[in-house]
Every structure is written in structure tokens, then in C-alpha cells.
């Protein structure tokens, strides 16, 4: 059952991701990206990372993608009929190059992967003892990760101010 779900979600994720790149229309690209993010949330559930799965759906598939769609609509972009032949030529050498890179990284990691062993103390039993994934994560986040957590608020503030400065119309 789990393997079945994994295959379904994986295919959906990778397939819709490919469609994002492939599809000439940005709105459709964005919709495919939402699908990809949803199915990735399924993968997170399979990994027993309930909190991350929730965030994936709420933040990514929800907030972020709404923003994307909003901007696309705002700019009223139409498919410009990008030169598809040129696009296909480009994909013919860019794809293999990216594959080479990631393949190279994975190959370089094979030695390390062979030595990966479950050494941590935070296995599923511990998580259950903590009262579930979300509770365990929350506890960790507000103890060990407190400072970085607070710092992210500054980052968000900077982003807000930056966006306002950028989007403001210049006064003439």
C-alpha cells in the first residue's frame, strides 16, 4: 500500500513538475506547480512528517502559489508563442547537463549514503511519546531553534519593507 502511494505521488510530483517547464502558458504552469506541491505533501505524509506536509499545502500550494497566480493575472501575461523549436533545442542540451550535475552529486554521495545508519534518538516511538509530530517539532522549534525562529521574523520584515519599496510607484 505504502509503495503504491509512493509511486502515485512520485509520478504526480515529477510529471507535473515537468509540465511546469514544458507548458508554454504561465497560468497553466502555475496550476501544474500547485499539483506538484500537493503531491509532494503526500510524500511528506508518507515520511511521517505531518507538520511539513501541512505547511507544504498551506504555505506553498496555498499562499505562495496564490501570489504567483495573482502576479500573472496582474500582468495579464499571454503565452507569447515562445519559439518552441528554439525551446526544444535548448532543452536538448540543458536537460542532460542538469542530469549530469545531479547524477554527479549523487554518485559523489554514494559512499556517504552507504554509511547512513539510523543513529538518532528521535525515532517514531520517541515522536509518539512526545505526543505526535507537531508537538515534538514545536517543542524543538521553541527551545533549540528559538533564536533562528525569531531571526526569521526579521527576515520577513525586511522582505515586507523591500517589497513595498520595490512595488511603490516612483513619484515624479
Amino acid at each position: 500500500m505504502e509503495l503504491f502511494l509512493f509511486v502515485i505521488f512520485s509520478l504526480l510530483t515529477v510529471g507535473s513538475a515537468a509540465a511546469v517547464v514544458w507548458h508554454p502558458h504561465p497560468v497553466k504552469s502555475a496550476l501544474f506547480l500547485i499539483l506538484s506541491f500537493f503531491s509532494m505533501g503526500g510524500l511528506y505524509l508518507l515520511l511521517q512528517a505531518e507538520f511539513i506536509a501541512l505547511m507544504q499545502v498551506l504555505v506553498y500550494a496555498g499562499a505562495v502559489m496564490v501570489l504567483f497566480l495573482f502576479v500573472i493575472m496582474l500582468l495579464n501575461l499571454k503565452p507569447r508563442g515562445e519559439d518552441r523549436t528554439a525551446f526544444k533545442v535548448r532543452i536538448r542540451w540543458a536537460g542532460p547537463l542538469a542530469l549530469l550535475f545531479v547524477g554527479g552529486v549523487l554518485t559523489a554521495m554514494t559512499g556517504a549514503l552507504a554509511r547512513v545508519a539510523p543513529a538518532g534518538a528521535q525515532g517514531p516511538e520517541w515522536v509518539v511519546a512526545q505526543g505526535g509530530n507537531i508537538r515534538a517539532l514545536g517543542r524543538l522549534l521553541f527551545t533549540r531553534g528559538l533564536l533562528p525562529f525569531e531571526v526569521t521574523s526579521i527576515l520577513l520584515l525586511v522582505a515586507v519593507v523591500g517589497v513595498m519599496v520595490l512595488a511603490k510607484k516612483e513619484r515624479r
Binding site: L97, F101, G104
Partner: peptide, 13 residues
């Protein structure tokens, strides 16, 4: 950037 990264990976391999 990607080409450079590939070269680095190849060198590491």
C-alpha cells in the same frame, strides 16, 4: 554556474 558546478563535481569524482 551550472557548468562550473559540473566541473567541480567531476573533479571531486
Amino acid at each position: 554556474i551550472l557548468a562550473g558546478a559540473c566541473l567541480l563535481i567531476l573533479a571531486a569524482l
